[in-house]
C-alpha cells in the first residue's frame, strides 16, 4: 500500500494521533471532570469580582500579589496538577481500560511515535483548557478594578506577567503530563503515584535545597513573574534563573517521555489482567 515514508510518515502519524487525542480530551465525556476543575479558578475569580468590597475596587496594586498567590497555591499546585493527571493518565490507561489500545498497536506505527503523538495531543489539549483558565482568571481578577485594572492588564508589565503565567502553565502541563503518561503506563491505578507525587510537591517548601531541585514545582515557581512569600522555608533554596528553569522543565519532560516510550516499546496486551 502506498503512502508516505520516513520523517514525513512519522509527522503524519504524530498529527493523526495528536488530533485524535485532542478530540478525546476536549470533546469526550472524560473531559467533563477536567472542565469542572478548570472552571474552579474562574468561578473563584468571578465570586471575587462580584463580592469585592467597594473600598478595594479603586486600588489594583494588591491584585497582582493576590493573583500570584492564587496562581501558585491553587491553580498551579492543584488545578493544573490534577487536570494533567486526569488527561495524561488516560492517554494509555484509558485505552487499556476500554480495551481498544490494541488497534493502535496493530498499526504500522513505532511505539515511540505512538507515545509522542498521544503526548502532544494531551499537551495541546491541556494547554488550551488550562491556558484559557489562566487568561480568564487574570481578566476576572482585574475586571472589578475598572479602568485601573484594564490599564494594568494592557500595559507592558501586565501583558508580560500574563505571558509568563501562560508559559509556566504550558510547561507545567508538559512536565506533569509526561509524568502522568508514564504513570499510566506503569501503574494499574496511577492515582496512587499521583497522590504520592503531589505529597512530594507539597513538601517542596520544607525540603533542603538539593532536594528542591527534584521537584517540578520548584522550577515552575522560578518562572512565575511575581514572587510569592514562602515563609521561613524560602531561605533554603533560591529560585533558579528563568532560562535554567525552562531548560530543566523541558529536560524533565523529555526524559520522562523517553521513559514512557521505552515502556511502550515493550507493552503487551493482556486486558484480562488489567
Amino acid at each position: 500500500m502506498s503512502g508516505s515514508h520516513g520523517w514525513s510518515l512519522w509527522r503524519r502519524q504524530i498529527t493523526v494521533l495528536a488530533k485524535q487525542e485532542i478530540g478525546r480530551s476536549l470533546f469526550s465525556r472524560r473531559s467533563l471532570a477536567v472542565y469542572l476543575l478548570a472552571a474552579m479558578p474562574i468561578a473563584l475569580a468571578l465570586l471575587r469580582a462580584l463580592f469585592l468590597p467597594e473600598s478595594q475596587r479603586a486600588h489594583a496594586a494588591h491584585t497582582t500579589t493576590e493573583f500570584a498567590e492564587v496562581y501558585h497555591f491553587f491553580i498551579l499546585r492543584f488545578i493544573v496538577f490534577f487536570s494533567a493527571a486526569m488527561l495524561f493518565v488516560k492517554l494509555f490507561r484509558g485505552e487499556i481500560l476500554e480495551r481498544s489500545l490494541h488497534y493502535h498497536l496493530l498499526a504500522p506505527v513505532r511505539r515511540e511515535i505512538l507515545t509522542v503523538g498521544k503526548y502532544i495531543g494531551g499537551l495541546l489539549a491541556s494547554a488550551a483548557i488550562l491556558g484559557a483558565t489562566v487568561v480568564l482568571t487574570i481578566v476576572l481578577f482585574y475586571l472589578p478594578h475598572g479602568r485601573a485594572g484594564m490599564a494594568h492588564l494592557t500595559s507592558a508589565s501586565g501583558l508580560g506577567e500574563g505571558f509568563a503565567y501562560l508559559v509556566t502553565t504550558v510547561l507545567a502541563c508538559a512536565a506533569y503530563g509526561a509524568l502522568f503518561l508514564l504513570a499510566g503506563l506503569y501503574f494499574k491505578n496511577p492515582m496512587i503515584p499521583a497522590v504520592l507525587f503531589l505529597g512530594w510537591e507539597l513538601l517542596t517548601p520544607f525540603l533542603p535545597g538539593f532536594l528542591k531541585l527534584l521537584s517540578v514545582v520548584h522550577y515552575l515557581g522560578s518562572l512565575e513573574p511575581v514572587p510569592i512569600s514562602q515563609g521561613p522555608f524560602a531561605l533554603m533554596a533560591q529560585p533558579v534563573p528563568g532560562w535554567l528553569a525552562v531548560v530543566a522543565l523541558i529536560a524533565i519532560s523529555v526524559g520522562l517521555l523517553a521513559l514512557g516510550a521505552w515502556k511502550a516499546r515493550g507493552l503487551e496486551i493482556t486486558y484480562s489482567t488489567e
Binding site: 500500500m1 503512502g3 510518515l9 503524519r12 469526550s28 476500554e98 481498544s100 488497534y103 493502535h104 504500522p108
Partner: peptide
C-alpha cells in the same frame, strides 16, 4: 492484518472514522 477476538472499539467511533483513522496511520492522505 490482525482481527482480534476483542469486541471493543475506541469510544465514539463510527465505522467510517475507525477505518479512515487506521488508514491515516498507514500513511495515506
Amino acid at each position: 492484518g490482525y482481527c482480534t477476538q476483542y469486541d471493543s472499539f475506541p469510544n465514539g467511533s463510527t465505522g467510517y472514522s475507525f477505518l479512515s483513522h487506521t488508514l491515516a496511520l498507514h500513511g495515506l492522505d
